[in-house]
Design a protein around this nucleic acid. Structure first.
Lengths: 256, 256
DNA sequence: CGTTCACTTGATCGGTGTCAAGCCGGGTGG
DNA sequence: CCACCCGGCTTGACACCGATCAAGTGAACG
């Protein structure tokens, strides 16, 4: 497919990539204040602007493959990505999910340990690893931001470790729905039904399953059970309506 | 028990703690070159030496509780600790294991999200959070070390996420034994049996189970199966001998 | 209109959890 | 010194959750 071509582009010849977007300015950036570059003021952020390229990737595209040399560091401007690892026999586990303002790529590792794939269409602000590294050396406050976010990621990953190791299928799916809800905060409240919440779920059943350490069938069954219990509704493809947030919270068996 | 007393000591009156060890020097430190403080040269490490205290904790002691305010940052000098999280009903998941040269405590979080308990007797090099923070601000290279290790932790945690979500009980236990082996590198090779490897396992069955997302019984059964298959032997309590490393590797179904 | 892909639903099987009993080694006290 | 206890571990019987295999539905798209 296109993967290797795109990767080559990213490393060597960005000007040739069909996915390369026209040069943008940090002033207009949707994540200027929420991504790691918030550490730099408008004056110093130009050092990043000078080496960045905006790129677009279609849903399903694998941006980085497990075992690739990691030459890319990027900030997510738009869309959702999944990080996953696979076993020799093909079993797959999603180990991280990225959305706007999250960053992608380990600056220190020689090669990536994860595959990064687009769940939706994705726009990235890309930096060549070495040049980003150079800016990092000049600006400890940028490194501080990376550290802050790494600790947050670690914390969130450990929380999913708790879910993966200890929770039942029902609890896992309920936890996932709550996570999705926290992440989106889409609230469509009407007078008569103040707990009606509709959210967009970009993930396929298979992806949710791979995230939760379940099979696609078990995940689907839990969705069905929640629907017949009127805890959720599925108004249309890719939409989930939470009909009863409290029940969902109870089913998720939150940590204290 | 003693937990709250010790914690109070750490925060307010270190000189009164029965666990406080006599003042030590960084020059003699067993992890001077392998822990985060390797970032500082002998001259600057005194800034840390000035605010550090060495402390000893008995096996089983809980140093930090989930929900505690996080006033402690520490480096492990000796022994093994476990980080765990619990659900409301008591189900517990170990989310991290620390040994010599690892560090304990999130400098940025207002409160700890994990419980930290001693698996063995433990010696820590402790710092008050705020004062460590101040040193950190003056020395970006120290922050760099923290970032490096946070990324490594994240990577290792994701690897366990793959195991928790996708591996069978047999594969999990095999993976755990290999991890223990990698960590220790105890090798007792004789002429006739070059693959005989004896290692010390400080963990109880229950702890291994809580780490792998299994029950203690299932874990025990896997140990028994490995023993009857002559993959491992249990020469004495707390000792595990690997009789056949290759088989163990095959059983663990390594990621590629 | 047929194909494809995501999803749902059903039937069955097996792995792992649960409950329970028993074993083993170490420590304590009579 | 032995009897007893206790905690950690092992082993057995059984139930059940979730995986597996398989068929069917529905929507999107050419």
């Amino acid at each position: 497919m296109f993967e290797s071509k795109v990767l080559a582009d990213l490393q060597g010849m960005p000007q040739l990539s069909p996915f390369l977007l026209p040069r943008a300015h940090c002033a207009d950036c949707p994540v200027r204040k929420s991504s790691v570059c918030c550490a730099l003021d408008d004056k110093h952020v130009t050092e990043l602007a000078d080496i960045m390229t905006h790129r677009h990737f279609a849903a399903g595209h694998a941006i980085v493959h497990q075992e690739d040399t990691s030459e890319l560091f990027a900030i997510v401007l738009e869309g959702t990505l999944k990080l996953s690892r696979v076993l020799e026999d093909g079993r797959q586990q999603i180990v991280g999910l990225l959305s706007a303002s999250d960053s992608l790529g380990n600056i220190f590792a020689r090669k990536s340990h994860d595959t990064a794939e687009c769940v939706t269409d994705v726009t990235l602000c890309c930096f060549p690893r070495k040049r980003f590294d150079a800016v990092l050396k000049r600006h400890p406050e940028l490194q501080h931001q990376l550290l802050l976010r790494a600790m947050e990621d670690l914390d969130e990953t450990r929380q999913w470790m708790l879910a993966l190791g200890q929770k039942s299928a029902e609890e896992k799916v309920a936890s996932f729905l709550l996570w999705l809800w926290d992440k989106q905060q889409y609230r469509v409240a009407t007078e008569q039904d103040r707990d009606a919440l509709i959210m967009t779920c970009p993930f396929k059943r298979r992806e949710i399953a791979e995230f939760l350490g379940l099979t696609l069938e078990t995940t689907s069954r839990q969705f069905s059970r929640f629907r017949t219990k009127h805890v959720i509704a599925l108004p249309s493809h890719g939409q989930i309506e939470i009909k009863n947030l409290d029940t969902l919270r109870r089913l998720a068996e939150q940590e204290r």
